[in-house]
Design a protein around this nucleic acid. Structure first.
Length: 289
DNA sequence: CGCGCAACCTGTCTGC
DNA sequence: TGCAGACAGGTTGCGC
């Protein structure tokens, strides 16, 4: 499911409901979820803490927790949805329902509950017990935030320079740009008129600008539409986003290109199903620079 | 260091 | 209808 726009959509919905609440009870049902830590050990460390803020970095949620007694000590509960994870919220008095794939549940001081539901069990929760550990964690995993002020065409040019790997592989590499996944990589490349298999270091200056704007445009459209619910992605209350209805090429094989009317094709790039308009996105024979 | 790919899981869809 | 195989929006670790 979840790329930057989906994670940010959920964060915006959850933040006003979670921030300021204490965690009355933490229950972790799947040891895979908190691996390598033991479920009851993690639950003990979380219980009783206050959720100060809910933030996002790349595709990670970051809940900043403080201790009720020792005001200064902070820790950070990171959550990642991977492919099929969902974070659901039920307010006080609402039925939490039955979820066959419930992996973890936080019960809050105001009577609300946060549910982590995940069919494929790739999703993860991780507790980092200091700001230094948090920074170390992200420094080695995540690159620039594509919707942040530092993501300009110069930044992107530096990332592309001298690289042989296909553009699509580079866009999916979280250590370079944090938050783009398979859907928005396809949408961004289509918007920029670039082929996913084009070697990264071969695009010219004007194309870098196009690509930078296309990335920002595709992610912003996803945010505007409150995420794409192609299969399992749901909002905090179980409702759907609308980006799946506004996608230009992704998952639209056989349909017509919104720009030129040609038939959209599916191919493989970076071992992922990839959708392009073959006439708008042609592979160019060029040298690396 | 850069790059490509198998592995981690479970459910669903496709083709014979 | 049944079944095997491919595929799914992500990340990590390993080999070259």
């Amino acid at each position: 499911m979840p790329e930057l726009p989906e994670v940010e959509t959920i964060r915006r919905q959850l933040a006003p409901r979670l921030e300021g609440c204490h965690i009355k009870e933490a229950r972790i049902f799947d040891p895979l979820w908190c691996r390598p830590e033991m479920p009851d050990q993690m639950a003990r460390s979380i219980r009783g803490r206050r959720i100060d803020r809910l933030q996002r970095r790349g595709k990670y949620f970051i809940a900043r927790l403080s201790d009720r007694d020792k005001g200064q000590s902070q820790s950070f509960l990171l959550m990642h949805l991977r492919m099929t994870g969902n974070l659901l919220y039920r307010g006080a008095g609402e039925d939490t329902g039955t979820h066959p794939h419930l992996r973890a549940q936080l019960d809050l001081s105001d009577g609300g509950s946060l549910l982590f539901v995940d069919v494929r069990r790739f999703g993860q929760g991780l507790l980092l017990k200091s700001r230094e550990l948090l920074e170390k964690f992200f420094n080695r995993r995540l690159g620039v935030e594509p919707l942040g002020p530092e993501f300009n065409s110069d930044t992107l040019a530096q990332l592309l320079k001298g690289r042989t790997r296909p553009l699509k592989a580079l866009l999916l590499d979280q250590t370079r740009i944090a938050g783009i996944g398979n859907i928005y990589a396809d949408e961004a490349l289509f918007r920029a008129g670039l082929h996913p298999l084009q070697p990264s270091g071969t695009i010219d200056e004007a194309e870098v600008v196009l690509l930078r704007d296309a990335i920002v445009g595709a992610l912003s459209a996803g945010l505007e539409a409150e995420g794409a619910s192609i299969s399992s992605f749901r909002h905090f209350d179980g409702s759907k986003g609308t980006m799946q209805e506004r996608l230009l090429v992704h998952s639209r094989a056989g349909k017509t290109c919104p720009r030129c009317g040609s038939k959209i094709m599916k191919l493989r790039a970076a071992s992922r199903g990839t959708y392009i308009c073959p006439s708008c996105q042609s592979l160019r024979k060029r040298k690396l620079h």
